[in-house]
Design a binder for these strands. Structure first.
Lengths: 252, 252
DNA sequence: AATTGCCAACTGGTCGGACCAGTTTTTCAG
DNA sequence: CTGAAAAACTGGTCCGACCAGTTGGCAATT
């Protein structure tokens, strides 16, 4: 453990322990350097690390300040690179949707072909839950529905891949739920799309199922893109708290 | 936005775009400083920021390495349970081909849309190698060609997913090479398909590229299925050694 | 010939001082 | 007293030096 790590750790402790409140200014780099008996370069490196974690914000000529949006719910996942990945690079969300479109399309197709009675039962159950949940907090039911379909594809590779993307998928699902569902007409569109997927699978229509699933994912992406372009403030989803109230624990 | 922020952003983008894979070593601080025309201090600050976000890890005396940013779609290596799954159930090979068909189709489409001059150069190089290699031992060139295309898609998620499936993909590629290429007419078909994919991408025809790539993967699967059904002794490929004589160690 | 051991050349870690560039405070001329 | 210049902050960037782990090759030893 290097000195800069140690410094950043001490500073973070100081902040979290309440010694420094959100929005408060922290001592200048030169002061910290003198006080802690290290070079200014070290201080700067430590500050950059905290900056990377979103703990502080610095402004040229003014100083560094404790970020107001501290991990209030101290969910470890909040520091997850994933959150920053999406926060810093919104494009990544669309990258994921591009992949999802293909994978979920294929999953739906296979599910329509291969679903057993048990699979159909599970899918139906998930669909019922999805239908009967508060639209504003059904990120998990939504994801559960999609997952049931994937599992019905009986393609272990597909299951494995989608499972690896689980956390990220939950993010996109939440993003869509949080941004799209409040808009009545969009909510209905999505509902309709879910139903189409469901029916196509249950009635064993592979190509229809694939088409519906792909259209669904594409719709989500296009809608969010449109919203973003319109300057609407898109709700950035954090990993630590979602509409369901539960954190996104790492997949097993 | 300061220079260090810009640098850290560029590095992250580089990593995400697949230019640097998880676990891979990134250039030394002095090299980066020289290459990007900034001082080493700036590089260190940028690296500390990425470190704070968990994007990289640095080790004294060794260097900085890309952390596994994305929630592992773990690399299916030799010891992986899934590898055994594959060994025992040949069907898994077709499961993988099903997934590959979608993913590589999408990759080809995006590559045709987004490939930069550099990408085209890399793809062309890979294609040349593929053309001029002994058909019986070109599993790696074959895979290299496909990989070049994937990277040209500029979709980090896609790159990551395919990368996680890399070892298994090498298996299918080897399986196809070992079984299909010895049959003259099939070898020519595959050659032709590769050329089609290549040309569609180079001439910027997205849908054609997707179609060609999907058809290619499908052809491989169908051919092997046919062979197997005909009772031909299908060459089983092991994970630890391939036709090139080299193990499936991660490429540099 | 094989092995051991050491040294040179990497790598990151730390330092101090210099200078630039914004921001705030002080000062002093009008 | 007012307002503008100037001084005294703040962070941002650079340089060159040196310390400290790591590694690989070469040489001396066995």
């Amino acid at each position: 453990m290097g000195i800069s790590q140690e410094i950043s750790y001490r500073l973070e402790r100081l902040i979290l322990d309440g010694g420094l409140a959100p929005g408060q200014k922290i001592p200048s780099e030169r002061q910290l350097a003198a006080r802690l008996g290290v070079s200014r370069a070290i201080i700067r490196e430590a500050l950059h690390e905290l900056q990377g974690r979103g703990v502080i914000q610095t402004h040229h000529g003014k100083g560094s300040f404790v970020a107001s949006i501290l991990p209030a719910t101290e969910d470890l996942d909040d520091r997850s690179p994933l959150a920053h990945l999406f926060a810093g690079h919104p494009r990544t969300l669309y990258d994921l949707l591009e992949v999802r479109e293909q994978l979920e399309g294929q999953a739906a197709l296979l599910a329509a072909q291969r679903a057993t009675a048990m699979d159909r039962h599970r899918i139906t159950k998930a669909f019922r839950v999805l239908e009967s949940t508060d639209p504003l907090s059904n990120a998990r039911p939504d994801h559960g529905f999609h997952q049931a379909i994937v599992e019905a594809s009986h393609n272990p590779i597909l299951v494995h891949v989608l499972n690896g993307l689980k956390n990220m998928m939950l993010l996109t699902v939440q993003a869509s739920v949080a941004n799209l569902n409040p808009r009545e007409e969009m909510r209905r569109s999505i509902m309709r799309q879910h139903k189409q997927i469901y029916q196509a699978i249950m009635t064993g229509k592979p190509t229809a199922a694939r088409k519906a699933a792909m259209a669904h994912v594409r719709f989500v992406g296009d809608s969010m893109r449109t919203l973003e372009r319109q300057g609407a403030k898109v709700i950035r989803v954090s990993l630590s708290a979602d509409a369901t109230g539960r954190g996104l624990t790492p997949s097993a």
